[in-house]
Design a protein around this nucleic acid. Structure first.
Lengths: 176, 176
DNA sequence: CGCGCCATGTAAGCAGTTACATGATTCC
DNA sequence: GGAATCATGTAACTGCTTACATGGCGCG
């Protein structure tokens, strides 16, 4: 159900198409939520049925037509109500690599090292992209406090992860 | 599908009941995965059908009978195959609080502060429990490297989160 | 006598993923 | 000519959550 409020949050900043919602979602929210265009389009339809958003059809001569969504009053009220009244659900992480970590005792040193290197590479690449996005966002002169805070979260998360990997490597070497 | 390997990992350490699997899962894996007894019992049944695990029924005179599960050879092979061959899927986080963060611009200073305090309290309580579990685990003389690494991950994650919250509070004050 | 722990399961429903499906434009 | 981007959707399936359901034991 929270995906709904993530999308309402995006639309609350400015009117956007479904396609834009997907793009913005992936740019600004992958650090703490995940979804696909498939789920997002469905949720937009549901929210429109419930009158939380409306759309205006924009006929574009040549390129495909598009629906530009904006919040209704009801939508804005519901978004704020959710933010301040709805009790916080605990955060959920699903990280396969950490499952693999639990069975390190039955893997060989090489296998463990390969896995760790793989995950370090993955995380470094994510961190680089996040920093790039932060630079891009800063250079736009945009100062949306929400975006500033969540991008920083993304960076800190990746940095913590990489530190932990480095520590884990050391730990394993010491134990061997 | 990964939940399966989390459970196989638990059972690989020593034969356990479904109830034990649930308990151990919640003690050692909540930092990076989430599930419920409902899903776990179902998955155990499926895995037994596929001959990755077997059980022995233990009749307990007075208390309810229990099924003690252990890995089959097939199960152990599949677990290791998964760990070293299956490509890593990216980690997924679902954190409602960070969705709320994105709409800070439409909330009042008090509302934001209340939300932040709430989340700080939540995270402090999680961190305290994790540290407690680490102490308990250390005092057992157990030195399972998987557990050492993942508990440390849990602690570092919570510490990062709290640091970020503190930073966010400062940031919001500076902007005001 | 009630609460928490041990112990196991099922059913209904919602959330989320993957694959299928289409098509124009722009840039190289 | 082909790839990337803009643009929108549906179908089938799997995963996950919430609620329902039961019951004995040990402790205070």
């Amino acid at each position: 159900m929270s995906i709904r409020y993530a999308l309402l949050g995006i639309i609350s900043k400015k009117p956007v198409t479904g396609y834009d919602v997907v793009t913005i979602f992936k740019q600004t929210m992958i650090y703490f939520w995940s979804s696909t265009h498939s789920q997002i389009y469905k949720e937009l339809h549901k929210m429109e049925e419930e009158e939380l958003i409306t759309h205006q059809l924009v006929i574009q001569g040549t390129s495909p037509n598009k629906k530009v969504y904006s919040l209704t009053d009801k939508g804005k009220k519901d978004l704020i109500r959710w933010a301040i009244e709805e009790p916080l659900k605990p955060a959920k992480i699903k990280d396969e690599f950490l499952i693999k970590t639990t069975i390190f005792p039955i893997l060989s040193a090489e296998e463990i090292n390969q896995l760790l290197d793989e995950v370090i590479e993955r995380e470094q690449s994510i961190l680089a992209k996040t920093k790039e996005w932060k630079e891009h966002f800063n250079s736009q002169g945009d100062s949306d406090i929400g975006t500033i805070l969540t991008v920083e979260y993304g960076i800190r998360y990746s940095e913590m992860y990489l530190e932990w990997c480095k520590w884990a490597k050391q730990m394993i070497q010491d134990k061997a």
